[in-house]
Simulated scan of single mutants.
Amino acid sequence: MSDLVLREQRGAAAHLILNRPDKLNSLNVPVFEALDAHVKAIAADPSGVAVVVLRGAGRCFSAGHDLGDIAAGEKLPEPNYQSKVIERITNLPLPVITAVHGHCYTGALELALSGDLILAAESAKFADTHAKWALTPVWGLSQRLPRRVGSAKAREMMFTCRTYSGREAEAMGLANTCFADDAFEAGIDAWVAEIAANSSFSHAANKRLLDHTDGLPLPAGLAHEVYRGEGVGPDMRDRIAAFAARKG
């Protein structure tokens, strides 16, 4: 596979690392093709992977969509290719963490929002700058951002093109938590360990439950949970037996 995205196994987590540090991991078609290959490989064989961590090499997560590529005219493998790759990340039956340090601007923010959880370093800088360039989102930001931070805050970010720190992202709910830069790696590992200790069956089923009921009226959502939930996982008896043994 291309070295534009690296895959590293760290305990129970597969880290997918944007690896274009000389360009601040700016996103072009080859980067998305490399990312897509890794995501498809994990979806086809998730053995040994409890969590996926999406992150960037070098100084930042990503400075965003490569404006040089936009100006030159991108050649996509298929229409709406980048949005489809982001959707495949979102639809992985595993918890996905986006780990953000440094820049996370515009297209990079759209990619970051594919994660179920966003963990930020204090050095993180989040912004949506589509309006600076007379662009509009096409990779999902207009739908995912307000669902994460609320419509009013999403409008603020989109209209002002302001930059928000890791701590500000945590305060608005964009990031689940923010770590001091020197605690970032340990913080990621701790979250992975906490998630990986729980049932992969439940994680996959709960992701589907949340996705399938998003936006439904409460009665419809409750009916979906009660009558279409996936019930008991194959590891339930072993988990309860292990708990009982510890109590005995």
Rank of each mutant, 00 (worst) to 15 (best):
L218N: 00
A134L: 14
I240M: 11
S151E: 15
K125P: 00
R239T: 11
A169R: 02
V51C: 12
A37K: 06
V31T: 11
A220E: 15
R7M: 02
A50C: 09
E122I: 09
G107M: 06
L76M: 14
A134I: 11
V29N: 04
V31K: 00
V232G: 00
A57W: 04
G221R: 12
A50M: 05
V192H: 04
Q9C: 08
E87W: 05
L222H: 10
L6C: 08
N198Y: 02
G233A: 07
A14F: 06
P146I: 01
D189E: 15
L94I: 11
G64A: 03
A169V: 06
G233D: 03
A196T: 07
C60G: 06
E156L: 13
I97E: 10
R144E: 12
S26V: 01
A152R: 15
I89K: 08
E168A: 13
V226K: 15
L135G: 02
M172L: 15
L119G: 07
L35M: 04
L174I: 07
T136Q: 10
A220P: 02
L210T: 04
L117Y: 13
M236K: 09
V96R: 05
R59W: 00
L24C: 04
P93S: 12
E87A: 15
H212L: 13
D66H: 12
K132F: 08
V96S: 09
P219L: 08
E156S: 11
R246I: 03
A190Y: 04
N206C: 04
V53E: 03
L4N: 03
S62Q: 02
L6W: 02
G221E: 04
A193C: 05
A50Y: 01
F201S: 04
I89G: 05
V49C: 08
S123E: 10
N19L: 04
A131W: 00
E74T: 03
A99D: 00
T160G: 06
D235F: 10
H38C: 01
E156I: 02
G56L: 07
A37H: 05
G229K: 02
P79L: 07
A34N: 02
K40S: 10
L24W: 05
L135E: 13
L216P: 07
Y164G: 00
A171T: 13
K153E: 12
L113A: 07
G56Y: 05
S123Y: 10
M157H: 02
V5C: 07
H103N: 10
G248Q: 10
C161Y: 03
G11M: 09
I97P: 08
R148Y: 12
A99Y: 00
L27R: 03
Q82G: 00
E168P: 05
V5P: 01
T160P: 08
R147Q: 15
E8N: 11
T90E: 15
E33K: 09
E225N: 08
A196I: 12
W133H: 15
E78R: 09
L94Y: 01
L218V: 13
A44W: 06
E225R: 11
H101P: 01
